[in-house]
Computed example of a mutant assay.
Amino acid sequence: MMRMLGLMTALLLTAAPAAAADDDPRWVFYSRDTTAYTSPWYDGAHRTMIGYGCTRAPYYPADSRCGGGRGFHHGIDVAMPCGTPITAGRFGRVVSSAAYGPAYGENPLVIRNKRLGVDILIAHARTVYVSVGDRVTRGVSLALASDSAAPDGCHLHFEVRSVAGGLDDAQRPVKLLDRVPA
């Protein structure tokens, strides 16, 4: 009987891993996707908190595209501990983020890729390592993840828009995030 109890306990411990010590207690996952993904844009493997498009997350006003009082999220929020390195996953040039409001944090980064015709927005960053005008290539250190202006904890907000576009020009960013299940 004791041996059986020991085997059951071992199975439970391996089947349901404990929360990582660096999980942010403010994280709320509005995405049903429980997969952790790696990406050339960040270190480690992390889950999606809020996906692109219609969401139940309370931070966004009701949007006519969504129905049921749901709001529209223009990017992907990837949960990650504060201080997680963020690196360039594509080449481009850092352009001004002055037109972006305070909801994106103190140091939003915009990387323009003219060949693809897009601006890639990295929000909620701190300790930024690049400046406007810098050329970046894949793997270049951009910043560290933070919770700047983020009520739901440390994460990376990854958004793609047409070059110099506004919110109406936001595009589904999953393809450029280059995620791979861990």
Rank of each mutant, 00 (worst) to 15 (best):
A79K: 00
F72V: 02
A164R: 12
Y59W: 13
V118W: 00
H124E: 01
G117C: 06
C154G: 03
A98V: 13
M80H: 05
W27L: 02
R135V: 15
K114H: 08
P102K: 09
T87G: 00
K114M: 11
L167T: 15
P17K: 02
Y42P: 08
R126Q: 13
R126A: 11
G83H: 01
L7F: 15
M80S: 01
G69R: 03
D22S: 10
L116P: 03
R126D: 13
T87P: 02
A16N: 12
T38C: 08
V128A: 03
A36V: 14
A164C: 05
A150R: 10
M1G: 10
V118K: 00
A16I: 15
R90F: 13
M2R: 14
S64P: 15
P81L: 04
T84S: 02
V163S: 00
F91C: 08
K175S: 11
G89Q: 02
M2E: 12
N107L: 09
L167C: 05
S131A: 07
V110R: 01
W41V: 10
D178M: 14
P58D: 06
A10D: 05
T55Y: 07
H46C: 03
Y129F: 15
D147H: 06
C82G: 10
V174M: 12
D23C: 11
T127V: 14
S31M: 06
R70I: 10
A18P: 04
G133S: 04
D77I: 09
G53W: 08
A170G: 07
